[in-house]
Design a protein around this nucleic acid. Sequence first.
DNA 1: TGTTAACACGAAAACGTTTTCGTTGCGAAT
DNA 2: ATTCGCAACGAAAACGTTTTCGTGTTAACA
Lengths: 365, 365
Amino acid sequence: MKFFGNIYYLYTKDLFKIKMKRKVTLKQISKELDVSISTVSKALRNSKEISEDTREKVQAFAKLYNYRPNNIALSLKNRKTKTIGIIIPEIVHHFFSKVIRGIELVANKQGYNVIVGLSNESFDKEVINMEMLANGSIDGFILSISKETLLQQDYHHFNETISQGMPIVMFDRVINDIKCDKVIVDDVQGSKKAVNKLVENGCKKIAIITTKDYVSVGKLRTQGYLEALDENKIHPEASLILKVDDKLVSEDYLDILEREIEHLFKSNKKLDGVFAVNELYAITAMKVARKFGKHIPNDIQVIGFTDGVLSKHATPSLTTVSQHGQKIGEKAAELLIHKLEHEDEEEQFQTIVIETELVERESTK
Amino acid sequence: MKFFGNIYYLYTKDLFKIKMKRKVTLKQISKELDVSISTVSKALRNSKEISEDTREKVQAFAKLYNYRPNNIALSLKNRKTKTIGIIIPEIVHHFFSKVIRGIELVANKQGYNVIVGLSNESFDKEVINMEMLANGSIDGFILSISKETLLQQDYHHFNETISQGMPIVMFDRVINDIKCDKVIVDDVQGSKKAVNKLVENGCKKIAIITTKDYVSVGKLRTQGYLEALDENKIHPEASLILKVDDKLVSEDYLDILEREIEHLFKSNKKLDGVFAVNELYAITAMKVARKFGKHIPNDIQVIGFTDGVLSKHATPSLTTVSQHGQKIGEKAAELLIHKLEHEDEEEQFQTIVIETELVERESTK
DNA sequence: TGTTAACACGAAAACGTTTTCGTTGCGAAT
DNA sequence: ATTCGCAACGAAAACGTTTTCGTGTTAACA
């Protein structure tokens, strides 16, 4: 007990540290017990190279001092960190936080940690964040692409990390011709379910409130809307399609949104159905409808996309297309971890489609 | 160019890897350039020990092959990881994700990464997550305590990590007698602001919908309610205090909540003001009020706590006590990073109180 | 007695850095 | 002709592990 005796502490500079039990290392244990580092290591891993005597002695000592192997040292040695890097555009967002929860769930179960970077919808922050993590901190990425990146169509950072042997799994906002696994929802199908529901319920004039086309999911949902109309022999009308520009997240963003929707209502007096590609658009549509004295769902029926808090707790509660964010996260994590632990197998990439589900609530008949 | 020539690749097993540019290390560069590892390292750090000639040569080569120092190796050497561990009870939650955003913001600005663990309100998961991270993966914790931990009052894991020299910053749900920095909102003051507002607006019978007392913030907010009543010479009534048990997050949780609030309304016909300690309770109270044919804010005024999506987008929109989650996160990160980078300074702990703000919307007059 | 085999352990390399402390070679000063 | 000093570089340790490959001791066997 040379090292851990009280004498030692008398020599430390900072008095307050007297009560500190610094993390103990193999080397320290080996000195205490007068054996080699290798012996300690082996004893702790129950190697049968070591006699029962010393094995017990070492393990008892290690337990007493609460020895835990240093993760960083292990990472360096194994060249694996057992942590997953997540890059998402925004965390204050029901869908993304559900995805994270899903990732964390399966990652943790398999002994992985999760480290989060936020791009804040910015290309530069996306790149910087990825570079920070790609230098050894993580084993692979799970990410959803920022709007700015989608707009600029500059994907070199993805290709570079992939070519360095670091696997990526993309979800929700993905790029087709990048060599990685993908987890997406069937946006087209989901939209069709929604629009079909409205048609079934007797709607004749159905509007869509969507984003500009560079947001891939917005584009796909618009496509689903159009296809559904077509299948129901309804002629699409330009005035029924509202494409909101959500590039600028300014202060008066909400007001602008509201005014645009008001305009939509005004120019379509006979409007009796609204399909919105996200919760906010849907909620705002309901608000505007109320303003115009329309009753939901009697006069106008509304369906949203994404089953978040807003949909659940709005009044009337919102019928919506649920994308199962948590399941997306779980699947993405499974894909990534599989790839990490079977690196030898031949390279091939999957795109997994998570089924959407129409959750019916009070905003439809 | 012995190593990087094409010849090398012909010998690799996996053909698909031919296009891989594996991460390059100091050792590889040193071999290529026929200098020592030390020289390369120094050259890259612009040491004036190295001649301009070789310095340029090395830097050019490094740039060409996109050399980046390996984070893990640096962490091991410096015994600092430059990453912060966050443990929170739940991520699908507006307040917590705002806090994370705040943490990430200042952490990133200072070159730190952020690694997230979810306790899911469970004591065990909290402990396991902390142990996973405490073994070298991070430099310090920012955390909010799980309900189960608060209930069991078992704080050994906090004390242990602290005594191992790893600093902790707690936010929102904190324990007083643990030696660490804390960032809290002034729950008592916040509640008083809300209740005072209701009194000012003419409310005579003000109810509170709160949690059981083991949730520290619930207890404090209840205390604020009582103090405000007292200061306004209003006698508190037991029947106006509803303490909801949110331990079990079951399926019919919402129904139970609604029924309890209905009971509150029934047993207090003259109810004209409601203060709820979170968004959900407030929203549900508004729902129940509507059910009872009461108009908001004319018949009943409602104020909530936490300025999340629900408050903003509810109809009527909800007057609420904003806690500034993002600012809490920013402050917590500042505190932790300061402690990490001034370890020598004498130990003393701060508790920072973030002012709440009453955001007035449509649910009050 | 000499060989062998099992047993129990230690030395050292490796992961990728940084940094301290040499060690050269060479021109200048004595 | 020495000594000195400086410039330019390399060796090695250290961070904390795991693992391979010795090596010495002892017991068993021929």
